[in-house]
Design a protein around this nucleic acid. Structure first.
Length: 467
DNA sequence: TTTTGAGTTGTTCGA
DNA sequence: GTCGAACAACTCAAA
């Protein structure tokens, strides 16, 4: 075969790219193609920060391709039509892509495969859906047995990783390609530089500097103890197999903390696989509760309270810090995600889908599988959900995971001079203290929009009624 | 088929 | 201040 199309979707990398290596093995020439799908661009789940990160990633990928004798062809339109046109233009005999298991992607790929020679390969998950099943062939819905079965499979090894090709022979003829739009101004504050090289640099830095303390620090919001690789995994600027191989590598050290940290981080990668599998096997979770009875929860859905949550004006410092971090940077600490999700669903009794959509619009790493899984876990509606009476207390969570208020003060500057003992409950400051610290509750910072203790018991009653 | 052990990440209360 | 129990049963997975 003379030409294969490498259809790039969530695999913006050249290293360990099975779609690319398969294309190179099958054809003399490979044409890398990106398609802007109007359906996805118009989705309410797309936001400008993630879009900007994607565009920057495409530019970086194009540069890497050009350094290897190739280039990125960019088109816009309905993928089946665009690909049919490209096959006609190039005479390519096959389209090869990394499989995306989310519901829209599967429908899209089915439509393509009906008319065109499409071949899908795994790479988005470490173990693809269908490979981790119970003895009777059905999928797992509880994490721990899933992870046991996952661990029983052959582990990815460094030798399995496909090296970066040194040269990518690409058809030389004239082929129309759109320019990649320039990054909107908004992206300036996003602390993620797009691209494969940056992903590898972060991986090395994390493994070398942070893995030993990961198990102890990963929940601390005031410490940069996490890998911050999620945006790169989201767009395949690093493959999850590369991450897993690095984790296994760190597990061979003699330092017990490093081994524990690596195991803990690998577990998070397995959670990522788990939610990819859940969405693949149960696509209805995208629209409703995994457990149907929880669709009957009587959400209060107060628009004013939702707006306060979105803008970081709830009066609960740790919630507000997290929501402002999200708005400013497109990222939020994992512990903070749980706290604000618990607050939205359990304190405000607002439908978890509202929070899911807000996260998707603002997160650079927004991924349908992980985001949906996390929200349903927090709301108590999902597979393997937390018991509904497990309601986070935003004050004690703050005290535990941001004890000196470093995280809060960074993102809620009006609380900068509030003493540590009040930093997570500033409304408890005596008026004289408010005066001295320059933070008058109701003037400089809002009073709490709900009384946690009161709404907690209301929510318990509401959940108990449908459980 | 039945039984048994277990289930990411919490909070509150009372001794 | 610390610690264990209660929260509330239910579903899942595997023997």
């Amino acid at each position: 075969m003379s030409t294969a199309i490498w259809w790039i979707r969530r695999d913006l990398r050249l290293a360990d790219n099975v779609a690319l290596s398969t294309a190179l093995a099958q054809a003399k020439q490979v044409l890398p193609v990106w398609i802007f799908d109007p359906v996805l661009l118009a989705s309410p789940y797309v936001g400008e920060k993630r879009l900007a990160f994607l565009l920057a990633g495409l530019r970086t990928l194009d540069q890497a391709l050009q350094a290897r004798g190739s280039r990125l062809i960019v088109r816009r339109g309905h993928p089946p039509a665009v690909l049919a046109q490209l096959l006609a233009e190039t005479g390519a005999g096959v389209i090869i892509a990394e499989e995306d298991y989310s519901p829209y992607a599967r429908r899209r790929d089915q439509a393509v495969a009906q008319a065109l020679p499409l071949r899908l390969v795994n790479g988005m998950a470490i173990q693809p859906p269908g490979r981790v099943l119970k003895a009777d062939g059905s999928p797992y819905t509880v994490f721990t047995p899933f992870s046991k079965a996952w661990h029983a499979l052959p582990r990815p090894r460094a030798a399995d990783l496909v090296p970066t090709p040194t040269h990518i022979p690409t058809p030389a003829g004239e082929l129309a390609s759109e320019l990649i739009p320039t990054t909107p101004q908004q992206a300036a504050a996003v602390p993620f530089m797009a691209g494969e090289a940056e992903a590898q640099r972060r991986l090395r830095y994390f493994i070398d500097q942070h893995i030993a303390a990961y198990a102890a620090n990963r929940d601390q919001m005031d410490i940069d103890g996490t890998s911050r690789l999620s945006p790169y995994l989201r767009f395949g600027m690093i493959s999850p197999r590369q991450a897993a191989v690095a984790a296994y590598g760190a597990m061979t050290t003699t330092i017990p903390e490093a081994r524990a940290g690596a195991a803990s981080w690998l577990n998070e990668l397995i959670w990522r696989d788990f939610y990819i599998h859940i969405l693949a096997h149960f696509p209805a979770v995208r629209r409703g509760s995994f457990r149907e009875k929880y669709d009957a929860i009587p959400w209060r859905n107060d628009e004013t309270q939702f707006a306060a949550w979105c803008s970081g004006q709830t009066g609960y410092p740790v919630v507000d810090a997290a929501m402002r971090q999200l708005a400013a940077t497109g990222w939020m600490h994992n512990r903070a995600r749980m706290i604000v999700a618990s607050f939205l669903t359990k304190d405000l009794l607002i439908d978890w889908r509202w929070g899911e959509r807000w996260f998707m619009r603002h997160l650079v790493d927004g991924d349908p599988a992980s985001n949906n899984g996390g929200w349903q876990w927090s709301a108590g509606t999902g597979t393997d959900a937390a018991p509904y009476f497990r309601i986070f207390n935003p004050v004690s969570q703050g005290a535990k995971f941001d004890p000196a208020g470093v995280y809060v003060r960074r993102w809620v500057p009006e609380l900068a001079r509030v003493p540590d003992q009040y930093i997570h409950a500033p409304w408890e400051m005596h008026p004289a203290v408010q005066q001295v610290t320059g933070c008058i509750i109701g003037r400089d910072y809002p009073p709490p929009i709900v009384d946690h203790r009161a709404v907690r018991s209301q929510t318990l009653a509401a959940y108990r009624a449908v459980a």
